[in-house]
């Protein structure tokens, strides 16, 4: 259930230095989120598609993932065409769908999916512990990275604890319904999970103290940039700059 589906694999992108991946994914997301010209968005989509193809991910899984996260976008499609002011394209009863509304919804859909694809290809291909390590190298505050590290480390443990509790409930013939009893049972489930995690955290911390933990994670290994990393980095940076230039460049010279 909580698995890094795309993190293992063998491709140019999987081998890329995680620091570069984080920087590129961030820059690219920001540019696409702010851009509004259609040709820029389509080129950006091409860029993400290229990343996905180069990273050699199972396409069906990627598409399934995309469909899953488009729920909010679906809501936009239901409402936006009818609430956006503009020329009427067609009418459904008292509601008028406008050309501008549909265009707006379409541009948001492209933007959103472009960013998600890029993030799957760039960040999804890195194990989260490696990402945490890379974030520390990118000067993200120490405590924040430690929080990330510990939380991810224990998500699986607590998930299995949750499954055990749910199984215990099932054995006792618990059937979720929409009544107070169900909510109470779920609340106690949550309370039990919090309680167990709290106790576990005490044990973990004591064990760490026994092993001489003094509040700091030492980074023993460091990333090193290979030539292929640099080349790919420069290509990606140039494409992103190109996108930015297409979006805002004209204003610079007129």
């Amino acid at each position: 259930m909580v698995a890094e589906e795309f993190s293992s694999g063998n491709s140019l992108i999987h081998d890329l230095d995680p620091r570069i991946k984080i920087i590129v994914a961030t820059l690219f997301s920001i540019i696409v989120a702010v851009a509004d010209r259609t040709e820029v968005l389509l080129l950006a989509l091409l860029f993400s598609a290229c990343c996905v193809i180069v990273s050699n991910l199972p396409l069906i899984k990627v598409i399934k993932r995309l469909l899953l996260v488009n729920g909010f976008i679906l809501l936009l499609w239901i409402l936006l065409p009818f609430t956006y002011p503009g020329k009427t394209l067609f009418s459904l009863g008292p509601l008028d769908a406008t050309v501008e509304g549909i265009r707006y919804a379409l541009s948001i859909t492209i933007k959103s999916n472009t960013i998600i694809l890029a993030c799957i290809a760039l960040l999804g291909t890195t194990p989260i512990f490696t990402l945490a390590h890379a974030l520390r190298h990118l000067y993200v505050p120490d405590k924040l990275v430690q929080l990330l590290f510990f939380s991810y480390r224990y998500i699986h443990v607590i998930y299995f604890e949750y499954v055990r509790l749910v199984n215990a409930m099932k054995i006792r013939c618990f059937r979720p319904r929409s009544d107070l009893h169900t909510y109470k049972a779920y609340a106690h489930l949550v309370g039990m999970m919090l309680l167990k995690s709290y106790d576990r955290s005490e044990r973990v911390y004591d064990a760490m103290l026994c092993r001489g933990f003094k509040g700091k994670f030492w980074m023993l290994d460091h990333f090193s940039l290979k030539r292929s990393d640099l080349i790919l980095f420069i290509i990606m940076l140039l494409s992103i700059t190109g996108l930015g230039f297409l979006q805002w460049g004209k204003g610079l010279f007129s």
Binding site: V2, F150, S151, I155, P176, T182, V190, S197, Y198, S201
Partner: peptide, 27 residues
Amino acid sequence: LDYDRVPQVAILTSAFFVASLVHVPIG
């Protein structure tokens, strides 16, 4: 947040993360 409370807050965070996967029926 003190350094010696980081593991505690983190493990509670993962508990909340798992809790957010819990679906509660309504109607």
